[in-house]
């Protein structure tokens, strides 16, 4: 079966060790987690895990059932990229001098839709949000000028179909 990128969204209680419990579902199946994010959801006290994994649909179906089976997980679902809107954020620390010398500021902001978060004499911090390919593109663009630090967040994603979002919300908040 064909491998694809899937985004798993799991809605959970906020308890110590749950991250461990969820990631062990992947470990025992020898699956690599591409990215993972957790934050409080729209419902107070309920947390949302966003986990990106590359595998087959059959595997991800089973995985989601196993995650949902955990006592402190309220609901788990999976989607392909087309069904969600997703973003990642990246931060780049570069030398102020080389950016200035290269006359890059305008290009950065205009062409790349990037922001300058902080500027010091020695270095500046650029921020860009987008899909991985886009933040990667900027990284590649900046590399010749010297990237001192680079970090990219895990994917965060929301579900497109209104009905499904509403249904999920109902399931998570109605007990």
């Amino acid at each position: 079966m064909e491998q694809k990128v899937f985004t798993i969204s799991a809605f959970t209680e906020n308890s110590i060790g749950l991250l461990n419990r969820i990631t062990s579902m992947f470990t025992r199946r020898h699956l690599n987690i591409e990215s993972l994010n957790t934050s409080e959801s729209e419902s107070p006290g309920i947390y949302r895990f966003t986990i990106v994994v590359k595998t087959t649909e059959e595997q991800v179906q089973k995985l989601v059932l196993q995650i949902e089976k955990q006592v402190e997980v309220l609901k788990a679902v999976y989607h392909v990229d087309e069904e969600t809107v997703f973003q990642e954020i990246a931060l780049y620390k570069v030398s102020t001098k080389s950016v200035a010398d290269g006359n890059l500021v305008e290009k950065l902001i205009r062409d790349n839709n990037a922001r300058i978060l902080s500027m010091e004499q020695e270095f500046m911090i650029i921020e860009k949000t987008g899909h991985k390919a886009e933040t990667q593109e900027l990284l590649d663009f900046l590399r010749p000028y010297g990237v001192i630090e680079f970090v990219r967040s895990g994917r965060i994603s929301v579900i497109k179909p209104m009905e499904e979002s509403e249904d999920l919300r109902k399931r998570i908040t109605n007990f």
């Binding site: 060790g17 419990r21 402190e72």
Partner: peptide
């Protein structure tokens, strides 16, 4: 023991 037993317990808690 919480981490060690996590994959083999239905639930655990410290």
């Amino acid at each position: 023991i919480i981490s060690i037993s996590m994959p083999v317990t239905k639930w655990n808690f410290q």
